[in-house]
Simulated scan of single mutants.
Amino acid sequence: MMLALVRHELRVLASLGLWVARRRHGIGDGTGFGYARGQGAMMMGFGFVIVIESITMSVLLRNHPAVQRAWFMVDVYTLVLVVGMHAASVVRPHVLGAGFLRVRHAAHVDLRIPLEKIAHVRRESRHTHERAEGELNLAVGAQTTITLELAEPVAHFTFLGRRRDVRLVRFHAEDADSLVSALRQARNVPSPLPDPTG
């Protein structure tokens, strides 16, 4: 567990460097599709709360300088991680490459799906996602915009390394229509019949 946390934090910190350098990770010859725009305001809100908390605790702990310094360092590191998680979402977009789609979510999900395993793809906005066996929901701002139905399961490894086989993947993309169109063109994926349940 500790190793997984350390790896994740290293990826987050590396993402900060890529963000500052205006570079993206893992695009290669593929095409990147962003998804971070929908969470920017929320992440700024988290950062603002951390700054206010740090100021408040600094005042409350002014008579305990050692504790005050330790608390301040924890708050600074937490703020760096929050900014880093947003940076990871920016620099690690979804990638459509030759024969595969890489579905990503910040620094903790990187699922490579061979195009031949995609049975159906559709543009579908959803704001509620109940956890279900064989499904992976990667919402941004509580929303997903694309649904992939797979012809056979692909292995997804959770944050702590547990394997889950998924047959349905929902995720968010800023330009969902373009990604769906590019996917269909790349794989000639058939469109499903409209969902009668809406």
Rank of each mutant, 00 (worst) to 15 (best):
E116Q: 13
A98K: 14
V121E: 04
P114E: 07
L115S: 09
P93N: 06
V91H: 02
A119L: 11
I118W: 05
V109R: 07
V121A: 11
R126Q: 13
D110V: 09
G97M: 05
L96M: 04
G97C: 11
S89P: 04
V103Y: 00
K117Q: 12
V109I: 05
L96F: 08
G97S: 09
F100P: 01
V109K: 00
F100D: 01
D110W: 08
H108D: 15
D110L: 03
L115E: 01
I113C: 03
A107I: 04
L96A: 12
E116H: 15
S89G: 13
L111Y: 00
A98V: 08
L115K: 09
L111M: 02
S125K: 04
R102I: 03
E116N: 12
S125L: 14
R104S: 12
E124C: 09
E116L: 15
H120C: 08
S125V: 13
H127V: 15
V95F: 07
A88D: 03
E130D: 13
V103F: 00
V82H: 10
V109P: 06
F100K: 03
H129R: 13
M85D: 09
R92H: 14
R102M: 15
I118D: 05
R104E: 04
S89T: 03
R122T: 14
L96V: 10
G97F: 10
A119W: 10
H127M: 12
L96Y: 12
R131A: 04
R92T: 07
H127P: 00
T128H: 10
V91M: 07
